[in-house]
Design a protein around this nucleic acid. Structure first.
Length: 600
RNA sequence: GGCGAGGUAGCUCAAUGGUGGAGCAGUGGACUCAUAAGCCAUUGGUUCUGGGUUCAAAUCCCAGCCUCGCCA
């Protein structure tokens, strides 16, 4: 039985397009790891989806004068388009607005209630008589009771920075129509997981040795100081998942509570779509299964403390509700390699000020692997990083094009010219050839170890350093001299170099899937490296929604370990080579900088 | 205000008590298969600041400054 790996990626809010910070923060690192583990022949399931609910969406809808559904339906397909073009290889990218997700989230709510983790509480909230509904905090403005600022939000005053208690706000007014709201009592469910604190502490301590310092220390700090406090999980909203209880009409599950369950519901949906619903248990109920969560640092304690506590609180309840006779408990996170933030040209990325590099827009002008390369070398693994167009330009031209792209092109072009595109069959290889092959072949081990630890920058740097080794080797032998004096010597050099390139293209394929596949095809190495997802439209009681789906057959899931230095067969003809990457003109730096902050 | 992470060469980052390194940029050189790419050599540092411990501190301790996140 191959190792099972769940790659869970934070669900993006469907109220804005995705920018480079979102990509490098979670989608790209998740994809790189998923591709690596697939090459190892492991059973990988990579899931995420659009977070369609919550006030982030309703506010956008009110601004635009459209329904929340329309907001979600605008952004969701754009996410899917971006992932397709950028090669983010989801097994399933779905949404929280599906019948399946509603069902799972409601079942989990009931399970937590049955297991004794839910309590109810009555509080006062602002109610709009004109709109006949409760107003979320972000919909109410008024005068700050600390500093007198007349335009304070009801939850926080921007001017003095104080956090405000909404009901104490002076002269409140509705952001929707300016009318004066009144305080009304309302009852809500709260999740109380405080009893699970000791178990969470143990869970964290067991993982202390290999988690990123930021993640483990912040989580331990949180459990040791604040702890797990009762938190509301329902709201007076009509856009979302209804509370599945009689007498609770008009109330929905709080978005933070239900969206995270997408990691579960999406796994179940994928298995359904592949015709084996019970298969989700392989990833979620098998104690050997490893669950990786790719998130940004703003989400750490939620994923490392609250979510594991929920999973513990659910126990075997979900499996039981889904009809399993021998129900099992859910698997806790194996690793949560949270990334820090990516800034842009020295400033925080801000969508509203258009201080952003948008994924879809950047793909209009740059190749996906060029973007993926820069987003990996500048990935905020240990501290905040900066997207800098000059740096992007330099890295693309001096590293990606010069070191790797040029290596492939110089060797294959030379071979094409002198051997008519047939990989030469060398006589006995020399000591130096064997040493190079040993060095490059050893990269599978070295790069692989770094990928296992989710040190992606380091892994890519290691692979690139190996490409430099091949360049050095070529200069040492100079096949362009050898061919003039002793063709057989040149054949040894060229065979060795092509072998090294074939291996490097596999090693680089998690990072650069498009160009690695191109090398794979030029060398005519057979089956594609990866199966890429397709866009599909599916129907349920809530309507139709687009998904990004990879359907896997039995043979796909039984592919062997390909993260190995497999021997290249000489004497085979390959295709006409071409440059893998585009060298950029320096003028793009100014052009791109001029775009920043501009009104679209 | 509390918790946590980070601050090292122009840039991106290594270095967990033992002579501060690498890649890129810069500079010089020989070469020409290749996208004027590659290769060789080389300049460059008050390790945020101030104290302390130690034979020895980027590293350990104390205080402060700056950036970021979470919570209040």
């Amino acid at each position: 039985m191959p190792e099972t790996i769940l790659i869970a990626i934070a669900w993006p809010y469907a109220n804005s397009d995705i920018h480079v910070g979102n990509i490098t923060g979670s989608h790209l690192p998740g994809d790189i790891c998923a591709r690596y583990h697939r090459l190892r022949g492991r059973k990988v399931l990579m899931v995420s989806g659009s977070d369609a609910h919550g006030t982030a969406i309703t506010i956008k809808a009110d601004q635009k004068g459209v329904s929340p559904m329309e907001v979600y339906q605008h952004y969701h397909p754009r996410f899917i388009e971006l992932f397709t073009k950028l090669g983010i290889s989801y097994d399933l990218f779905t949404s929280t607005h599906t019948a399946n997700h509603f069902d799972i989230a409601q079942k989990i709510f009931i399970v937590l209630k049955e297991n004794g983790y839910l309590i109810t509480n009555i509080s006062k909230q602002w109610y709009s008589k004109t709109q006949k509904r409760f107003l979320p905090d972000r919909y109410v403005e008024g005068t700050c009771y600390y500093c007198g600022n007349e335009d304070a939000r009801s939850d926080q005053c921007e001017q003095c920075g104080h956090v405000l208690e909404a009901e104490k706000l002076v002269s409140p007014r509705s952001k929707l129509d300016g009318s004066t709201p009144e305080l009304r009592e309302t009852e809500h469910y709260y999740l109380d997981l405080s009893g699970l604190e000791p178990k969470i502490k143990t869970f964290l301590q067991e993982r202390e040795s290999y988690w990123r310092p930021l993640v483990i220390n912040q989580s331990l700090g949180m459990i040791n100081t604040t702890g797990l406090k009762p938190t509301p999980i329902t709201r007076d909203l009509d856009w979302g998942i209804p509370v599945p209880l009689e007498g609770w009409e008009g109330k929905c599950l709080y978005v933070w509570f239900e969206a995270v369950m997408g990691y579960l519901s999406a796994a179940i949906e994928w298995c359904d779509l592949n015709g084996n619903r019970d298969a989700w248990r392989d990833w979620w109920l098998n104690p050997e299964s490893k669950c990786f969560y790719y998130i940004g640092k703003d989400n750490i304690t939620f994923h490392a403390v609250t979510w594991p506590a929920e999973l513990l609180g659910i126990r075997d309840g979900l499996d039981r509700k889904l009809g399993s006779p021998d129900s099992k408990a859910l698997v806790l996170p194996y690793n949560i390699p949270a990334n820090e933030f990516m800034n842009l040209e020295g400033r925080k990325i801000s969508g509203s000020q258009n201080w952003a590099v948008w994924g879809l827009d950047a793909l209009e002008r740059y190749d996906p692997d060029a973007l993926r390369y820069y987003l990996t070398v500048a990935m905020p693994e240990t501290r905040d990083t900066d997207w800098d167009w000059e740096d992007f330009f330099q890295r693309n031209n001096n590293e990606l094009v010069a070191t790797w792209g040029n290596l492939v092109n110089r060797v294959l072009s030379f071979t094409y010219k002198h051997w008519e595109g047939i990989i030469p069959a060398p006589e006995k290889l020399r000591e130096s050839d064997l040493i190079l092959l040993q060095t490059i072949g050893g990269g599978f081990e070295k790069v692989g170890q770094l990928l296992e630890k989710v040190e992606l920058r380091g892994a890519l740097a290691e692979a690139m350093a190996l490409a430099t080794e091949v360049n050095k080797y070529l200069d040492m032998h100079g096949p362009w001299f050898e061919i003039k004096t002793d063709r057989k010597e040149a054949e040894k050099t060229i065979y060795t170099a092509i072998q090294a390139i074939a291996w490097l293209s596999v090693m680089l394929s998690p990072f650069l899937p498009f160009t690695s596949q191109a090398v794979h095809e030029i060398l005519d190495l057979g089956e594609p490296l990866f199966q890429e997802p397709q866009v599909e439209e599916v129907q349920d009681e809530l309507g139709s929604h687009q998904i990004l789906l990879t359907r896997r057959t039995e043979s796909d899931s039984e592919r062997s370990d390909r993260w190995l230095p497999n021997k290249l067969v000489p004497g085979r003809k390959f295709k006409q080579p071409y440059p893998l990457f585009k060298k950029l003109d320096h003028k793009i730096v100014e052009e791109e900088r001029d775009r920043l902050g501009a009104k679209s």
